[in-house]
Design a protein around this nucleic acid. Structure first.
Length: 424
DNA sequence: TCTGGGGTCCTAGGACCC
DNA sequence: TCTGGGGTCCTAGGACCC
């Protein structure tokens, strides 16, 4: 049996955790650059706000409704996520961490009663030890467990498939709300007369494969209680990408280069943390696609590296060269992205013939030293000489466009000594 | 002025292999 | 009337996820 465990309004719950003064009051968390609402608690939803709302449009209304607004604090959310999973591992060694706020827990099939009890106990323990509200869905397949979880949110936090009249529930469940059925599949299914989860459960397998491909067929199997979706348990990522929108339009190549250098350093740091090396680098540059003023321009370029590498100067140099190739003067650029592609184990990577191991070792030692300095004195303290063509703030202290806007950032309560809350 | 960031999987088609 | 059979690897683009 599978438990699907999901934290409710996770980012908003994390922010509320250290602010008991906000209990029962609306909370919203904003995206990078304080652009849109990406998480809101129940009180905030009740006040009429929704995920995806642009902050600058709702700002005044939110202030009137007494909403407390936070910028994204991923350091905090990642730490709380780790605490949740540590607790899940006490219940079963078999935990698949699916996202920052969702995990699948695998249990041997005990009798139904003790499973639902286990779900309630888990919820209670998490409430006491981590302080974040969670929901638990229990079913024989991942798709059904996720469905039960959605039902659980309205039914006391725990919902077991075995205790439901399955077909009756599926008949009320819109097919588009199922895991793995997005907008385009919903549209396509409607043409075949499939509107509810029950319709899809009864959809013939061979036809499902024809019109929905293998993934859609698996969804049909899972609705019929046949496990078909594998776990994703990967030692390392296949790609690592880093990107941020600028806080306003940027025209200047040097400014974009500075941002790209920063993202390259960030991506390489993450790659080195899992001891991987990449085979290729891709860069994407674009103006704001949503903008009604100004012409849209977006372009990307990819380059293979000589050998799989995690050496920042090589990766960054390649990225900057790619950027120069796709940059066109005169556009109002809003975003640049770097993607490290074809990741493999650094140890196993096939080396280039004429690069000697001494060079590799020196490069690695250099990168390790840089990582340590940046960990200790802050991101961007040291890096390749080509970065920081444009300073983070100008002479008057104005923030440069490539520096993220985060006006409502909460403290790093759990990961920075100076930010640990004081109690009396 | 201002609308997020980071991923995975699948498919089709081309290049190439013996 | 007729052109072999059976593969792998790679890439771009689409769909989907949180």
């Amino acid at each position: 049996m599978i438990f699907h465990v999901d934290a409710n309004s996770f980012y908003a719950s994390c922010e509320g955790l250290f602010r008991p003064d906000l209990r029962g009051k609306p909370i919203a968390v904003l995206s990078n650059n304080d652009g849109i609402i990406i998480a809101l608690n129940a009180e905030c939803k009740e006040a009429g706000f929704a995920r995806g709302d642009a902050y600058y449009q709702k700002k005044d209304e939110m202030a009137r409704s007494g909403v407390t607004v936070f910028s994204s604090n991923y350091t905090l959310y990642a730490d709380i996520s780790a605490r949740l999973n540590m607790l899940y591992f006490r219940y079963t060694p078999d935990v698949e961490i699916y996202s920052i706020d969702e995990s699948f827990l695998y249990f041997p099939s005990w009798d139904k009663k003790s499973l639902a009890e286990t779900g309630s106990s888990l919820r209670e323990r998490v409430g006491i030890e981590v302080g974040i509200p969670i929901s638990v869905g229990i079913a024989p397949t991942k798709t059904l467990a996720k469905l039960c979880n959605k039902l659980a949110k309205k039914r006391g936090g725990v919902c077991a498939w075995a205790e439901l009249d399955g077909d009756a529930e599926l008949a009320h469940y819109p097919v588009g709300d199922l895991w793995g059925v997005g907008r385009s599949k919903t549209k396509l299914l409607a043409r075949h007369g499939v509107d509810t989860a029950l319709d899809l459960k009864r959809f013939p397998l061979h036809r499902a494969k024809e019109c929905l491909s293998i993934t859609g067929m698996r969804t049909v199997q899972e609705l019929n209680e046949v496990p078909a979706i594998d776990r994703v348990e990967r030692e390392r990522h296949q790609n690592i990408c880093s990107s941020k929108s600028f806080s306003r339009a940027v025209y200047d190549l040097d400014e974009i280069k500075t941002a790209l250098s920063d993202y390259a350093q960030e991506a390489v740091k993450r790659m080195r943390a899992e001891r991987s090396a990449c085979r290729a680098v891709a860069v994407f540059l674009s103006t704001n696609p949503a903008s009604e003023t100004g012409e849209y321009y977006g372009n990307s370029a990819t380059a293979e590296l000589g050998e799989p590498t995690s050496f920042l100067p090589d990766i960054q140099g390649t990225a900057l060269r790619l950027l120069e190739g796709i940059y066109r003067p005169g556009f109002r650029y809003r975003k640049v992205l770097i993607n490290l592609i074809g990741l493999e184990s650094e140890v196993r990577a096939q080396g280039e013939l004429f690069v000697d191991d001494g060079t590799r070792q020196r490069n690695d030692a250099l990168m390790t030293a840089c990582d340590r300095i940046n960990d200790r004195y802050g991101r961007g303290t040291i890096g390749p000489g080509s970065r920081r063509l444009v300073a983070a703030t100008d002479r008057d202290g104005n923030r440069s466009a490539w520096v993220m806007k985060r006006d409502f950032l909460s403290p790093e309560y759990t990961t920075k000594l100076a930010d640990v809350p004081r109690v009396r």
